[in-house]
Amino acid sequence: MLLQIKNLKVGYRNIEVVRGVELNIDKGECVGLIGESGCGKTTVGLSVTKLIPERIGMTSGEILFEDKNILKLNPEELRNIRGKKISYVFQEPFSSLNPVFTVYEQIREMLEKKNNIYIQIAEILKSVGLEKIIGRKNVYPHELSGGMQQRAMIGMAIASKPSLVILDEPTTALDVTIQRQILDLITGLKNKMNLSILFISHDLRIVFSIADKIGIMYAGKIVEYGTKEKIISSPSHPYTIGLIDSIPSFEHRKQLFNVIGGKAPLFSELPKGCKFYPRCRFRIKECLKKEPELKDISADHFSRCILTSEIAARRLPKQNRSI
C-alpha cells in the first residue's frame, strides 16, 4: 500500500471539517474523492502533503506514505517528499502558476538533477503535449490558454517522477473538449509512469471516466467507498444515488431530476445522527439515533447507511420524478 490514511481528523479552529477519513491508495491506482463544495475533500488532499498550517488546522490520525507518518515528519523530511514523491495539481492553473517566471523556469525548479536541463524540460513538455513551446524559453504563463496552463502544471507535477499525484479539480475550469484531453493525458501518464493518483472532484462523470476506486464524502466523512463498477452499478448510499440522479444527460430529456434537496450542512451545525438525514429521501426514525458506521456491503464496497439493503429497491424509477 503506497498511501494509507487512517482516521484522519482535521479541525479549523474548533470546528472539525474532516471527521475521521480512511482511505488507501495502491501503487498505480487512481482513487477518486467526490463531494459537494465544502465537504472537506480538499482538506483531505492538503493534509496528505501536510499543507495545512499547524496554527490554523488541528490534525490527528495517521497518514502513512511508504510506511512513514507524514503528519509526524519534520520540515526537512517533508521537503524531501513534497513535490518530489508527492506532487499536487491545483484547481485553477492560472492562479497556481507564477506570473513573473517563464514556464521553462518553473519546470526547471522542479527538476532534481540539474544536468542537461533543456533536454529534460523538452521531454517533460513533450510528455504533457506541449510540443509547441519546446525551445521557447521566454514563454510566460499568461501567453498560454487554460488547457495549456494545466498541461504545464501537470508537467511540473511529474517532473520529479513522483509516485503519488494529488489532482484537486484539475479540469473544473476547463471546456469539455479540453477537459477530455487533460483526462486522457492524465490516464496516459498514469499508465506510463505507474502513478498513483488521488483525484478530487465534485463531478461524478469525470471521476467515473478516470478512477479505479471512488470515495464519496459528505460532511467530513466518507459515506460510500467502492470500485468504480460497484458505485456505478449498485450505488448504496442515498447521497450517492442523489448525485448519480443529478447527472444531466440526453436520456433524461425533459424530465425533472430526482434531486437532493436543500444544501450541505454547516460544520458548526451538524445534525444529530446520520448527517445526511435532513436531505435524505429514504430516512426513517432510527437514522437519528447515531451516526452509522461504514458497513461492508460486498467485497471492496462500503456504505455508511443503516438502510443499505432496502435502498436499491426503493430507488424511484425515472418517470416518477418530481421537484
Binding site: 459537494e36 461524478l204 448525485l243 425533472l256 431530476f257 444544501k263
Partner: peptide
C-alpha cells in the same frame, strides 16, 4: 455550480 445544485437549478428552469 456543483452537480447536485446544478440539478436543482435545472429543475427550477424546466418547471
Amino acid at each position: 455550480l456543483d452537480i447536485s445544485i446544478q440539478a436543482q437549478i435545472l429543475n427550477l428552469l424546466i418547471d
